[in-house]
């Protein structure tokens, strides 16, 4: 079982390329989403104040 998972993570020796190619873009996109969502929440708070 553990061997299988390790084998999957290893990706036939190309683990570095594949995992960075997935990790960096997805973190970029989702962190941008989170930033925008928190901004929207702040805006809504501010709007109700006025």
């Amino acid at each position: 079982m553990i061997d299988e998972i390790l084998n999957f993570i290893n990706m036939n020796g190309h683990s570095f390329y594949i995992w960075t190619a997935y990790f960096i873009p997805l973190t970029l996109i989702f962190s941008y989403i989170l930033i925008q969502r928190s901004k929207l929440k702040r805006m809504k708070k501010y709007e109700t104040k006025i």
């Binding site: 989403i33 969502r37 929207l40 805006m43 006025i50």
Partner: peptide, 23 residues
């Protein structure tokens, strides 16, 4: 879909900001 979602969120932020400045 992600693009449409982020776009709509950002547009809403922008419109709200404008509204606040306007008021």
């Amino acid at each position: 879909f992600l693009f449409i979602y982020i776009l709509l969120v950002s547009v809403e932020i922008n419109l709200k900001k404008r509204k606040i400045i306007y008021y």
